[in-house]
Design a protein around this nucleic acid. Sequence first.
DNA 1: ATAGGGTTAG
Length: 564
Amino acid sequence: MSSAPLTATPAPLLPANKPKSAAPQHPLLSHLPHCTSLRGLAQLHAAAVKAGLAAHPALVTRLLTLCTGPGAGPAHLAYARQVFDRVTQPSDAVWYNTLLRGYARSSSSSSSSSAAAVRVFVRMLEEGVAPDTYTFVSLLKACAARVTFGRADGDCVVSYNAMIAAAVRSSRPGEALVLFREMQAKGLNPTPVTVISVLSACALLGALQLGRWLHDYVRKLGLGSLVKVSTALVDMYAKCGSLEDAIAVFQGMESRDRQAWSVMIVAYANHGYGREAISLFEEMKKQGMKPDDITFLGLLYACSHSGLVSEGLRYFDDMKDHGIVPGIKHYGCVTDLLARSGQLERAYKFIDELPINPTPILWRTLLSACGGHGDVELGKRVFERILELDDSHGGDYVIFSNLCANTGYWEEMNRVRKLMSDKGVVKVPGCSSIEIDNTVHEFFAGDGRHPKSQEARKMVDEVIDQLKLVGYIPDTSHVFHVEMGEEEKAISLKYHSEKLAIAFGLLNTAPGATLRVVKNLRVCPDCHSMAKFVSMVFNRRIILRDLNRFHHFERGICSCGDYW
DNA sequence: ATAGGGTTAG
């Protein structure tokens, strides 16, 4: 990404707060507007310093702008910082803001940039320079969290866009929607950027109805011809469970960039259509579009989720031919591909021999496959590898302890459970949501947080009774609280969050309406089985998005083919 | 002169 490395050190600058209009126009400075290369600018800078023009405001501004602009790498940002630091009194907010923009841009790749940005902001206040909307917006992006310094300009669309985007990036989609409604109430018109961010919030929430409303809005404003807007729509529809709509938008696009293709490939992958993802990838190449690292990630993801082992391994090899170096996520997909298909030892060896350090996530992938295949011996080795790297993840203890329980290793199971409580590790509570009439209802496993959960529980009781009549048998093998009696286990299982959400949906929607449920964890085998029965007995389509993928239940079968 | 956006393993 970054262009020519910069080796020059900026010369010390004189105080810069003299009247700009009084500065004489030197021939060197007339080159400034035409100078676009960073290397050329560094040379110009050196020449200007020699000519005694070091602190010329136009020079400083141009240097800062270029070194914080698109294509500028960490070296350029460091150079900008040096230039900035040598201006003894940067009285102009623009210079602070430009430097902040550099930290904002690098915030996705560098974790230290948010702290650096805050320090610049503090220094700005100390120097008595008033921050403005530009300051606020860049700071917001650099820190990727709610900024507590107050809002710069509540009537500025860009401010709202920045706040909405920050909420989405830090996984607070509900807050993004609140901000969106607030800006509309103020009469501010959303821009394409707003629409893209809000669509992304819908995708996170699974809020299909709001997403459809935004789609209408896009049509009304004629924004559908913008590739990025359409791509966001494809992503939203896919993540809200409507693959049909995602396909329709994708096929209706006049032009598609690489990202549009990648999004559609990931969409197919998420819904378990591995073959379709592969043929889309081949189509993309045929049309002369070059796949990038993310395209391949989607493709490998598609293969692993559809059990297409040899295809996935072949595409993994193909990455080299495209000049793409596999990253940790690609390795993660291959691990999943091998492990899920039962090649557990091979997956272990694969992780162990990686050219880069594996993250706990890779081992976690394998551990979960060990659980699925009942390999307690390898599971134990993997579990220990995880603990060396991260012993704070509740899910690991749960998977391994269930694996021990299901294979009869009770002593080991007790040891793991004790370890978990000694370390104070907690398991993430299951939470499922369902959108009904533009309202998202959330249910947590077992508890009564939702005002309607009593109602939902009663409905679950009735539903389960009906399902039992046609052969549904609760499968308690994945209940974590294994020390409980069978009856207790059945009760705990009965009120899993997805069951509550499904029951609530049955109660509050018209007969035959599709139920769309979003869950924060992977669906458990019993809930999966229950959903299959519900789709048959109540004649409902159920579209369940879990942590990994979509399950489409219809007439008693699931689109994942029970492979998930 | 300086500000905002979608895809990414489990």
